[in-house]
Simulated assay, not measured.
Amino acid sequence: MQQLLSEEIIKKYFKTIVKCPLFQNLGESELLGYLHNARVIVKEYRKNDFIALSGDPMEGIGVILEGSALLTRENVMGQRVIMANLEASAMFGEALLFSKQALWPATIKAMKASKIMFIPLETFIQTLPDCQQCQTKILSNLLEDLSEKAMILTKKVHYLTLKGMREKIFAYLTDIYTVQHSEELKLPHNREQMAEVLNVSRTALSRELGRLRDEGIIDIQGRSVSLLDLSVITEFGFNNN
């Protein structure tokens, strides 16, 4: 049920909401004005609850106020592929907002107890009191985010076009290096999730990571990876092909 946010929720989650890409470059007064006038849906989920199932109707853009979630999709072979890890302040579903058939194309599962704010289409197309300028900024942010997500999707396709396990790993590490700007990486995925992102088996992935470590190309401890031979690794990066 759509509702105005309570003062309690706004106060509790304001620092989280302001970090959401949808609200970047909004002044505090602008964002507060929007939050006080926008009718949204707020839902709570327990760990392992499904936030959305593939094929379900979409209620609006989701913003994670608390907790985390995993967005996945099964391919025709029944293999689960991780599309995105979603943490507090992240949003999802923006690509569907103006679709004529707004059905979730993927499954979203809560990885811990979570609270989600869904922002329906009406909030974007109806003029809110004293918020015309901030709505324009929000729509601009939405378009920018869609462009970034399109690039991420293109990179995932890039992984699939690489035939060798080593090339896939190098492309994956290069993308993270490009974001973190450090040869000491903190991986966003555990080993099982990384295998799903690259669409490879976990066993084969672990074996190849072990070889790369033995060859002195990387050092890996859990989710921490040191890039010891950057020139070799970045050869298969997205922008180098």
Rank of each mutant, 00 (worst) to 15 (best):
F14N: 02
M77E: 12
I9N: 10
V81E: 15
G78F: 05
D49A: 03
N37H: 15
A69E: 11
G60I: 02
R39N: 10
I17N: 01
F23I: 13
L26C: 13
E66S: 05
F14S: 04
S54L: 06
G27N: 08
V42K: 02
E30A: 14
H36F: 09
K11R: 10
K47T: 11
S68L: 02
F23Q: 12
L53G: 02
G60W: 01
Y34Q: 01
K11Q: 13
E30K: 05
A52V: 10
I10Q: 07
L31V: 05
G55R: 07
C20A: 12
R80N: 11
G60M: 05
Y34L: 11
V81G: 04
E44F: 00
L71P: 00
L26A: 06
I17H: 01
K47A: 12
G62K: 01
I17E: 04
I64K: 01
R39C: 08
V40F: 00
V42W: 02
H36R: 15
I61K: 06
Y45L: 00
K15L: 14
K43A: 13
C20D: 03
K43G: 06
K47Y: 06
G60F: 03
S68Y: 02
E44V: 02
H36L: 12
I41K: 10
K19L: 14
L86G: 13
G33E: 07
A88D: 05
T16R: 08
G67E: 00
E30Q: 15
A52Y: 03
G62F: 03
N25P: 00
I10E: 03
L31T: 08
R39V: 08
S29V: 10
G78A: 06
M83Y: 13
G27A: 11
K43F: 00
V63T: 13
E59G: 07
E87C: 03
E74S: 11
M77R: 05
K19T: 08
I51G: 05
V76E: 15
F23L: 12
L31R: 05
L70H: 04
G60T: 06
I17P: 09
L32Q: 12
F14T: 04
Y45V: 01
L65F: 00
N37Y: 13
Y13F: 12
I61T: 08
N25Q: 14
G60A: 03
G33T: 07
I17F: 00
E74F: 10
A69V: 10
L31M: 08
E87F: 04
Y13K: 00
R46P: 04
L65K: 00
Q79I: 05
L53P: 00
V63N: 12
L26D: 08
S54H: 09
N48T: 14
R39H: 12
